[in-house]
Amino acid sequence: MSIPFEHLQWMYETMVKIRTYEERLVEAYAEGKYPVFNIGAGPVPGEMHLAAGQEPAAVGICVHLKPEDTVTAPHRPHHHAIAKGVDLRRMTAEIYGKATGLGKGKGGHMHLFDPATKFSCGGIIAAGMPHAAGAALASKMRGKDWVAVAFIGEGAANQGAFHETLNLAALWKLPLVVVIEDNRYGISVPKALSTAVERNDARAAAYGIPGYYVADNDVLEMYRVSREAVERARRGEGPSLIEIETYRYLGHFQGDPEVYRAKEEVPGLREKDPIRRLREHLLAQGVAEQDMAAWEARAKAAVDEAFAFARDSEYPAPEAALEDVFAASEV
Protein backbone atom coordinates (compact mmCIF):
# COMPACT_ATOMS: atom_id res chain seq x y z
CA MET A 1 0.00 0.00 0.00
CA SER A 2 1.45 3.33 -0.92
CA ILE A 3 0.58 6.29 1.22
CA PRO A 4 0.36 9.69 -0.49
CA PHE A 5 3.15 11.99 0.61
CA GLU A 6 0.72 14.67 1.82
CA HIS A 7 -0.91 12.12 4.11
CA LEU A 8 2.42 11.15 5.62
CA GLN A 9 3.33 14.77 6.09
CA TRP A 10 -0.03 15.60 7.66
CA MET A 11 0.15 12.63 10.04
CA TYR A 12 3.67 13.49 11.12
CA GLU A 13 2.99 17.16 11.64
CA THR A 14 -0.28 16.48 13.45
CA MET A 15 1.34 13.93 15.76
CA VAL A 16 4.04 16.45 16.62
CA LYS A 17 1.38 19.08 17.24
CA ILE A 18 -0.56 16.74 19.54
CA ARG A 19 2.54 15.73 21.48
CA THR A 20 3.69 19.34 21.84
CA TYR A 21 0.23 20.35 22.95
CA GLU A 22 -0.06 17.66 25.60
CA GLU A 23 3.43 18.33 26.93
CA ARG A 24 2.63 22.03 27.12
CA LEU A 25 -0.49 21.19 29.09
CA VAL A 26 1.52 19.09 31.54
CA GLU A 27 3.42 22.26 32.43
CA ALA A 28 0.48 24.66 32.33
CA TYR A 29 -1.66 22.33 34.41
CA ALA A 30 1.04 21.95 37.07
CA GLU A 31 1.26 25.71 37.63
CA GLY A 32 0.14 26.54 41.16
CA LYS A 33 -0.78 22.95 42.08
CA TYR A 34 2.33 21.97 44.06
CA PRO A 35 4.16 21.20 46.42
CA VAL A 36 1.09 19.40 47.81
CA PHE A 37 -1.05 18.53 44.80
CA ASN A 38 -4.18 20.67 44.82
CA ILE A 39 -6.46 19.78 41.91
CA GLY A 40 -8.47 22.97 42.35
CA ALA A 41 -5.54 25.41 42.02
CA GLY A 42 -3.73 27.08 39.14
CA PRO A 43 -4.87 28.43 35.79
CA VAL A 44 -6.37 25.08 34.73
CA PRO A 45 -8.19 23.62 37.76
CA GLY A 46 -9.99 20.27 37.75
CA GLU A 47 -9.15 16.96 36.16
CA MET A 48 -6.84 16.65 33.17
CA HIS A 49 -6.56 13.53 31.02
CA LEU A 50 -3.75 13.74 28.47
CA ALA A 51 -3.04 11.56 25.45
CA ALA A 52 0.72 11.79 24.85
CA GLY A 53 1.64 8.48 23.17
CA GLN A 54 -1.81 7.83 21.73
CA GLU A 55 -1.38 9.99 18.62
CA PRO A 56 -1.48 7.13 16.05
CA ALA A 57 -5.07 6.21 16.96
CA ALA A 58 -6.29 9.69 16.14
CA VAL A 59 -4.24 10.67 13.10
CA GLY A 60 -4.35 7.25 11.41
CA ILE A 61 -8.08 7.52 10.88
CA CYS A 62 -8.78 11.25 10.89
CA VAL A 63 -6.51 11.60 7.84
CA HIS A 64 -9.31 9.85 5.93
CA LEU A 65 -12.09 12.11 7.19
CA LYS A 66 -13.81 15.17 5.79
CA PRO A 67 -15.11 18.14 7.77
CA GLU A 68 -18.64 16.76 7.33
CA ASP A 69 -17.73 13.49 9.04
CA THR A 70 -18.63 13.20 12.72
CA VAL A 71 -16.19 12.31 15.50
CA THR A 72 -17.13 11.54 19.09
CA ALA A 73 -14.43 11.14 21.72
CA PRO A 74 -14.21 10.26 25.39
CA HIS A 75 -12.71 12.02 28.41
CA ARG A 76 -9.20 11.99 26.89
CA PRO A 77 -10.05 13.94 23.76
CA HIS A 78 -7.28 16.34 22.75
CA HIS A 79 -5.59 14.14 20.15
CA HIS A 80 -8.90 13.42 18.46
CA ALA A 81 -9.89 17.09 18.47
CA ILE A 82 -6.57 18.22 17.02
CA ALA A 83 -6.62 15.48 14.38
CA LYS A 84 -10.18 16.41 13.40
CA GLY A 85 -9.08 19.99 12.88
CA VAL A 86 -10.77 21.70 15.81
CA ASP A 87 -9.57 25.31 16.17
CA LEU A 88 -6.66 25.03 18.55
CA ARG A 89 -7.02 28.52 19.96
CA ARG A 90 -10.66 28.16 20.92
CA MET A 91 -10.04 24.63 22.20
CA THR A 92 -7.27 25.85 24.48
CA ALA A 93 -9.38 28.75 25.68
CA GLU A 94 -12.08 26.25 26.58
CA ILE A 95 -9.59 24.21 28.61
CA TYR A 96 -8.64 27.43 30.42
CA GLY A 97 -12.33 28.14 31.09
CA LYS A 98 -12.30 31.36 29.07
CA ALA A 99 -15.26 33.04 27.38
CA THR A 100 -13.56 32.72 23.96
CA GLY A 101 -13.57 28.92 24.27
CA LEU A 102 -15.49 26.48 22.10
CA GLY A 103 -18.14 26.25 24.79
CA LYS A 104 -17.77 29.81 26.11
CA GLY A 105 -15.55 28.47 28.87
CA LYS A 106 -18.36 26.48 30.41
CA GLY A 107 -17.32 22.96 29.43
CA GLY A 108 -13.64 22.45 30.07
CA HIS A 109 -11.26 19.91 28.65
CA MET A 110 -13.66 16.95 28.68
CA HIS A 111 -16.45 18.89 26.98
CA LEU A 112 -15.16 20.18 23.66
CA PHE A 113 -17.88 20.76 21.07
CA ASP A 114 -17.19 22.12 17.62
CA PRO A 115 -19.97 22.25 15.02
CA ALA A 116 -17.49 23.36 12.34
CA THR A 117 -15.68 20.02 12.45
CA LYS A 118 -18.57 17.99 13.87
CA PHE A 119 -16.47 17.06 16.88
CA SER A 120 -17.74 16.30 20.35
CA CYS A 121 -16.55 14.51 23.45
CA GLY A 122 -17.64 13.77 27.00
CA GLY A 123 -16.67 12.21 30.28
CA ILE A 124 -19.07 9.27 30.42
CA ILE A 125 -17.60 6.04 29.17
CA ALA A 126 -19.06 4.81 25.83
CA ALA A 127 -21.72 7.53 25.91
CA GLY A 128 -20.50 8.99 22.61
CA MET A 129 -20.97 5.72 20.71
CA PRO A 130 -24.74 5.86 20.24
CA HIS A 131 -24.43 9.55 19.35
CA ALA A 132 -22.02 8.63 16.57
CA ALA A 133 -24.44 5.93 15.43
CA GLY A 134 -27.19 8.54 15.37
CA ALA A 135 -25.01 10.84 13.27
CA ALA A 136 -24.37 7.93 10.92
CA LEU A 137 -28.08 7.17 10.66
CA ALA A 138 -28.84 10.83 9.97
CA SER A 139 -26.20 10.85 7.22
CA LYS A 140 -27.73 7.76 5.64
CA MET A 141 -31.30 9.08 5.86
CA ARG A 142 -30.26 12.40 4.33
CA GLY A 143 -28.53 10.68 1.44
CA LYS A 144 -25.02 11.85 2.35
CA ASP A 145 -21.79 9.87 2.23
CA TRP A 146 -20.67 11.26 5.59
CA VAL A 147 -19.31 8.77 8.09
CA ALA A 148 -19.09 8.85 11.87
CA VAL A 149 -16.16 7.73 13.99
CA ALA A 150 -16.55 6.94 17.68
CA PHE A 151 -13.37 6.77 19.72
CA ILE A 152 -13.52 4.89 23.01
CA GLY A 153 -11.04 3.36 25.42
CA GLU A 154 -10.70 -0.40 25.89
CA GLY A 155 -12.52 -0.14 29.23
CA ALA A 156 -15.59 1.28 27.51
CA ALA A 157 -16.04 -1.91 25.48
CA ASN A 158 -17.61 -3.47 28.57
CA GLN A 159 -20.40 -0.92 28.82
CA GLY A 160 -23.90 -1.76 27.69
CA ALA A 161 -23.89 1.19 25.28
CA PHE A 162 -21.01 -0.39 23.35
CA HIS A 163 -22.96 -3.54 22.59
CA GLU A 164 -26.27 -1.82 21.99
CA THR A 165 -24.65 0.55 19.51
CA LEU A 166 -22.76 -2.11 17.59
CA ASN A 167 -25.91 -4.17 17.19
CA LEU A 168 -27.91 -1.19 15.92
CA ALA A 169 -25.16 -0.06 13.60
CA ALA A 170 -24.69 -3.54 12.13
CA LEU A 171 -28.44 -4.14 11.85
CA TRP A 172 -28.98 -0.86 10.01
CA LYS A 173 -25.65 -0.94 8.09
CA LEU A 174 -24.69 2.46 9.41
CA PRO A 175 -21.59 4.32 8.19
CA LEU A 176 -19.88 4.06 11.56
CA VAL A 177 -16.34 3.18 12.55
CA VAL A 178 -15.63 2.46 16.19
CA VAL A 179 -12.02 2.89 17.26
CA ILE A 180 -11.00 1.30 20.55
CA GLU A 181 -7.80 2.72 21.97
CA ASP A 182 -6.33 0.00 24.13
CA ASN A 183 -3.92 1.91 26.34
CA ARG A 184 -3.80 -1.06 28.75
CA TYR A 185 -5.69 0.46 31.69
CA GLY A 186 -9.14 1.70 32.55
CA ILE A 187 -7.75 4.21 35.03
CA SER A 188 -5.92 1.58 37.13
CA VAL A 189 -7.45 -1.73 36.10
CA PRO A 190 -5.52 -3.66 33.45
CA LYS A 191 -7.46 -4.96 30.47
CA ALA A 192 -6.93 -8.58 31.45
CA LEU A 193 -8.85 -7.97 34.70
CA SER A 194 -11.75 -6.16 33.06
CA THR A 195 -12.30 -7.75 29.69
CA ALA A 196 -13.30 -11.33 28.94
CA VAL A 197 -11.55 -11.43 25.57
CA GLU A 198 -7.91 -10.66 24.92
CA ARG A 199 -8.63 -8.47 21.94
CA ASN A 200 -11.77 -6.46 21.37
CA ASP A 201 -11.70 -6.88 17.59
CA ALA A 202 -12.97 -10.40 18.36
CA ARG A 203 -16.22 -8.81 19.48
CA ALA A 204 -16.93 -7.65 15.91
CA ALA A 205 -17.84 -11.23 15.06
CA ALA A 206 -20.76 -11.06 17.48
CA TYR A 207 -22.30 -8.39 15.25
CA GLY A 208 -21.20 -9.75 11.88
CA ILE A 209 -18.97 -6.79 11.05
CA PRO A 210 -15.27 -6.49 10.16
CA GLY A 211 -12.91 -6.27 13.11
CA TYR A 212 -9.35 -5.02 12.80
CA TYR A 213 -6.47 -5.07 15.24
CA VAL A 214 -3.50 -2.73 15.07
CA ALA A 215 -0.57 -3.94 17.17
CA ASP A 216 2.12 -1.84 18.79
CA ASN A 217 0.77 1.67 18.17
CA ASP A 218 1.65 1.41 14.49
CA VAL A 219 0.42 4.55 12.74
CA LEU A 220 0.95 3.16 9.23
CA GLU A 221 -1.09 0.04 10.00
CA MET A 222 -3.72 2.25 11.63
CA TYR A 223 -3.78 4.27 8.43
CA ARG A 224 -4.28 1.14 6.33
CA VAL A 225 -7.12 -0.49 8.29
CA SER A 226 -8.83 2.85 8.83
CA ARG A 227 -8.87 3.51 5.10
CA GLU A 228 -10.63 0.19 4.56
CA ALA A 229 -13.13 0.84 7.33
CA VAL A 230 -13.89 4.44 6.31
CA GLU A 231 -14.24 3.55 2.63
CA ARG A 232 -16.55 0.68 3.46
CA ALA A 233 -18.67 3.01 5.59
CA ARG A 234 -18.75 5.64 2.85
CA ARG A 235 -19.87 3.05 0.32
CA GLY A 236 -22.85 2.27 2.54
CA GLU A 237 -21.69 -1.22 3.46
CA GLY A 238 -21.90 -0.75 7.20
CA PRO A 239 -19.81 -0.37 10.33
CA SER A 240 -16.41 -1.66 11.35
CA LEU A 241 -14.56 -2.07 14.61
CA ILE A 242 -10.87 -1.27 15.05
CA GLU A 243 -8.80 -1.87 18.15
CA ILE A 244 -5.37 -0.29 18.34
CA GLU A 245 -2.81 -1.19 20.97
CA THR A 246 -1.58 2.21 22.07
CA TYR A 247 0.52 3.78 24.81
CA ARG A 248 -0.48 6.13 27.58
CA TYR A 249 2.73 7.83 28.66
CA LEU A 250 1.11 9.86 31.43
CA GLY A 251 -1.19 8.96 34.30
CA HIS A 252 -4.92 8.51 33.89
CA PHE A 253 -5.12 12.08 35.09
CA GLN A 254 -2.37 14.57 35.88
CA GLY A 255 -1.50 13.95 39.52
CA ASP A 256 -2.14 10.20 39.25
CA PRO A 257 0.45 8.42 41.43
CA GLU A 258 0.19 5.41 39.05
CA VAL A 259 0.57 2.79 41.75
CA TYR A 260 -0.92 0.24 39.38
CA ARG A 261 2.01 0.01 36.97
CA ALA A 262 5.71 -0.66 37.15
CA LYS A 263 8.06 2.29 36.98
CA GLU A 264 9.86 0.75 33.97
CA GLU A 265 6.73 0.50 31.90
CA VAL A 266 6.57 3.99 30.45
CA PRO A 267 10.29 4.31 29.64
CA GLY A 268 9.93 1.00 27.80
CA LEU A 269 6.99 2.34 25.82
CA ARG A 270 8.80 5.56 24.99
CA GLU A 271 11.58 3.56 23.38
CA LYS A 272 9.02 2.59 20.74
CA ASP A 273 7.72 6.12 20.34
CA PRO A 274 5.43 6.31 17.31
CA ILE A 275 6.49 9.81 16.33
CA ARG A 276 10.13 8.80 16.18
CA ARG A 277 9.22 5.67 14.23
CA LEU A 278 7.31 7.71 11.67
CA ARG A 279 10.20 10.16 11.46
CA GLU A 280 12.59 7.30 10.71
CA HIS A 281 10.18 6.01 8.10
CA LEU A 282 10.07 9.43 6.44
CA LEU A 283 13.86 9.70 6.46
CA ALA A 284 14.09 6.28 4.84
CA GLN A 285 11.64 7.52 2.21
CA GLY A 286 14.03 10.34 1.41
CA VAL A 287 12.30 13.21 3.19
CA ALA A 288 14.84 15.89 4.12
CA GLU A 289 15.62 16.66 7.77
CA GLN A 290 15.09 20.36 7.21
CA ASP A 291 11.62 19.76 5.74
CA MET A 292 10.60 17.88 8.84
CA ALA A 293 12.11 20.54 11.05
CA ALA A 294 9.95 23.10 9.26
CA TRP A 295 6.80 21.02 9.89
CA GLU A 296 7.78 20.63 13.53
CA ALA A 297 8.31 24.38 13.87
CA ARG A 298 4.91 25.06 12.31
CA ALA A 299 3.25 22.65 14.77
CA LYS A 300 4.97 24.25 17.75
CA ALA A 301 4.05 27.75 16.56
CA ALA A 302 0.38 26.75 16.39
CA VAL A 303 0.56 25.46 19.95
CA ASP A 304 2.32 28.60 21.20
CA GLU A 305 -0.29 30.78 19.60
CA ALA A 306 -3.16 28.76 21.06
CA PHE A 307 -1.83 28.98 24.61
CA ALA A 308 -1.16 32.70 24.32
CA PHE A 309 -4.71 33.22 23.05
CA ALA A 310 -6.14 31.23 25.96
CA ARG A 311 -4.12 33.01 28.60
CA ASP A 312 -5.01 36.43 27.21
CA SER A 313 -8.75 35.74 27.03
CA GLU A 314 -11.30 36.75 29.66
CA TYR A 315 -13.33 34.52 31.94
CA PRO A 316 -17.06 34.32 31.30
CA ALA A 317 -19.30 36.53 33.41
CA PRO A 318 -20.85 34.61 36.32
CA GLU A 319 -24.37 35.19 34.96
CA ALA A 320 -23.34 33.37 31.78
CA ALA A 321 -23.78 30.18 33.80
CA LEU A 322 -27.53 30.77 33.64
CA GLU A 323 -27.63 30.90 29.84
CA ASP A 324 -28.14 28.12 27.31
CA VAL A 325 -30.18 25.74 29.43
CA PHE A 326 -32.99 26.20 26.89
CA ALA A 327 -32.97 27.65 23.39
CA ALA A 328 -34.86 30.83 23.97
CA SER A 329 -34.66 31.93 27.56
CA GLU A 330 -32.63 32.18 30.68
CA VAL A 331 -33.67 30.31 33.78
Binding site: P45, K106, A321, L322
Partner: peptide
Protein backbone atom coordinates in the same frame (compact mmCIF):
# COMPACT_ATOMS: atom_id res chain seq x y z
CA UNK B 1 -29.48 27.24 40.31
CA UNK B 2 -31.48 25.36 37.72
CA UNK B 3 -28.50 24.84 35.45
CA UNK B 4 -25.98 22.02 35.15
CA UNK B 5 -23.21 22.59 37.69
CA UNK B 6 -20.94 25.07 35.87
CA UNK B 7 -17.20 25.14 35.30
CA UNK B 8 -14.55 26.19 37.78
CA UNK B 9 -14.59 29.89 36.96
CA UNK B 10 -18.18 30.22 38.16
CA UNK B 11 -18.57 27.12 40.33
CA UNK B 12 -18.46 29.13 43.53
CA UNK B 13 -21.26 31.33 42.23
CA UNK B 14 -23.40 28.25 41.72
Amino acid sequence: FDVPVPMFSVEDDY
